[in-house]
Nucleic acid binder design. Structure first.
Lengths: 129, 129
DNA sequence: GTGAATGCAAAAGCTTTGCAACCTA
DNA sequence: TAGGTTGCAAAGCTTTTGCATTCAC
């Protein structure tokens, strides 16, 4: 059975309180303020468990450490090509699963992950005036 | 100026001939059949260059090596939760960029990447009969 | 000829793992 | 008390980098 330890609780809290999709190193640094003797390995093990349990969503990008998102209600991500920031976009979506389901009857589609690339408002202003 | 070396040509050819989105290690192994003294570092440097030039698309997934896709016309990816395979889905898409553009006037959206998760036909049959 | 690209090897991340001690249920 | 979890440290993997040499243009 899975146990609710101080460490697991702290890791989840830190990610929930974070604003910008932190990675394991940042989470480790923050959690150490509460539990100074926690190890990086424990952070990784708990992040993995929390992802499995559905509390966190992992976000991977080429050449970067995995980031974690505690925002569980449906939303999209924008990767800014100017500053590299990962921004949440709250958007009403059409049913994105439908096209794949209709076109591929043999396939079972369970979820979809959508990532936009472009410019965040700040970078757009800086680059285009 | 960028130079067209035997190594760069071979890397691109290997990825184009590959069927299932190979990673750097696999590409290295294949290219060595043609250029035995090529180094893994050169493979990485050329993959990076080919991505920059738009010949290849990098695909990243949590806990896995980056894979490369030479299929440049628009398509989606399905990650099979059964066997882990990364499958191309050829699907007619609605305009996925429109919702984000309408909802976020300050943002400039340039491209979108869509990844489905679910079961490929083989795994679906195996699991559900 | 010139400087981009290569091969080699070392190093730099990020992440995982083995193990004894510890703690939650 | 049982076994999931932790801290620590070492190892594993993928990817990057420094440098002398080579090669494309």
């Amino acid at each position: 059975m899975r146990r609710l330890t101080r460490q697991r609780k702290a890791v989840l809290e830190v990610v929930r309180e974070a604003k910008n999709h932190p990675d394991a190193a940042w989470i480790y640094q923050e959690v150490r303020k509460r539990i100074p003797r926690i190890s990086l390995g424990t952070v990784y093990r708990n992040l993995e468990a929390l992802v499995e349990e559905g509390y966190l969503i992992p976000i991977t990008r080429a050449g970067e450490a995995t980031r974690y998102d505690a925002n569980t209600h449906p939303h999209l991500h924008l990767v800014c090509e100017g500053c590299g920031a990962l921004v949440d976009l709250e958007v009403e979506l059409p049913d994105l699963l439908a096209p794949a389901r209709l076109a591929h009857p043999g396939v079972e589609v369970r979820s979809v992950e959508v990532t936009y690339r472009g410019l965040c408002p700040e970078c757009r202003r800086a680059l285009k005036g």
